[in-house]
C-alpha cells in the first residue's frame, strides 16, 4: 500500500503530465454536471419565482416538499431512477440506463430542489419595492422579473454554486444509473470510489484535488461577485 505522500506525489504527476484516463474522467464529470445544471436552472428559477411572488393553492406544501427534498440521499435518487430506467421499469424502453443522459437526469433531480429552495429563499427575502418600483417605472411584468433577478443575483448565484457543488461531488446516483463505465460514464466521484476500493490511491487523490480546486474556484468567483455589489437601501 502506498504511503499518503507517495500517493500525493503520484497524483500530482498524473495531473501535470496530462494522464489521458484521468483527464477523460474529469471531462465527463464536468460535461455531465454542467449540462444538468444548465437544464435545471431556468425551470428551477421560474419555480422559485412563482413560489416567492404568486399565491396559489398548495404553495406552502410545495415549499415544504422542496425543502424536504434537499435532504434526499443521492443513492435514493439513484435507486429510484435505476428502477424507472431499467428494462422492467416504466421508462425501460428508452434504454437510458448506464448512459450519461441517465446521469444527467439523476443530477437534475438532485440539484433542482436546491436551486428552487435556495432561489425561493433569496427571492422571498428581496425587497418587494423592487418589483413595484420596476412596474411603476413602466417595466413590463417580464422586465420587472428580470430586474428582480438582477437585484437578487448574489443569492441566486449562491444557489447555483451550492447546487453545482452537490452534483459534481455526488457518487450514489451516478454510480447506480451511470454504471461507472470507463471513458463513458466514469466521473470523478465514482472513479475515486473505485480506485480507493482497488487500493490505488494516487488517482483518487488527484481527482480529489481537482474537486477541491473546483470548490475553491467557485467560492472565489462568488466572493468576487458579491464583493463588487453594494447594498441599496
Amino acid at each position: 500500500m502506498e504511503t499518503l505522500s507517495e500517493a500525493s506525489l503520484q497524483a500530482l504527476y498524473l495531473l501535470f503530465t496530462g494522464d489521458r484516463e484521468l483527464w477523460t474522467i474529469i471531462g465527463i464529470s464536468f460535461t455531465v454536471s454542467l449540462r444538468a445544471i444548465l437544464f435545471a436552472a431556468p425551470f428551477a428559477l421560474i419555480c422559485a419565482f412563482m413560489l416567492a411572488y404568486t399565491q396559489f393553492p398548495g404553495r406552502r406544501l410545495l415549499i415544504s416538499f422542496f425543502n424536504t427534498a434537499l435532504s434526499i440521499p443521492a443513492v435514493v435518487v439513484g435507486l429510484t431512477l435505476y428502477m424507472t430506467l431499467s428494462r422492467a421499469g416504466p421508462l425501460g424502453n428508452l434504454r437510458l440506463l448506464f448512459t450519461q443522459e441517465a446521469m444527467i437526469i439523476g443530477q437534475i433531480l438532485l440539484c433542482f430542489p436546491i436551486l428552487v429552495a435556495m432561489g425561493h429563499s433569496a427571492l422571498q427575502a428581496t425587497d418587494r419595492r423592487v418589483w413595484e418600483t420596476a412596474l411603476t417605472l413602466g417595466a413590463t411584468p417580464l422586465r420587472a422579473v428580470i430586474t428582480v433577478i438582477h437585484e437578487t443575483r448574489f443569492g441566486l448565484t449562491a444557489a447555483l454554486v451550492a447546487a453545482f457543488g452537490r452534483i459534481i461531488a455526488e457518487v450514489g446516483s451516478s454510480m447506480m444509473v451511470g454504471g461507472n463505465i470507463l471513458n463513458h460514464t466514469r466521473n470523478i466521484p465514482t472513479a475515486i470510489a473505485l480506485e480507493t476500493s482497488k487500493g490505488s490511491f494516487a488517482q483518487g487523490i488527484a481527482l480529489g484535488l481537482v474537486l477541491l480546486l473546483l470548490a475553491l474556484a467557485l467560492n472565489l468567483a462568488l466572493t468576487s461577485i458579491q464583493g463588487k455589489g453594494a447594498v441599496s437601501p
Binding site: D127, R129, E132, T133, A134, G138, E151, P233
Partner: peptide, 26 residues
C-alpha cells in the same frame, strides 16, 4: 401614474442607471 414609496428603492447601480431605468423601458 408613477408611485414613490415612502422610502424609495434605488436599484443596485449608479444614479444615472436609476434615472435612466424608466426611459430605457420606453
Amino acid at each position: 401614474c408613477c408611485y414613490l414609496h415612502q422610502q424609495p428603492y434605488l436599484f443596485d447601480g449608479s444614479v444615472f442607471d436609476n434615472v435612466a431605468y424608466g426611459l430605457r423601458r420606453r
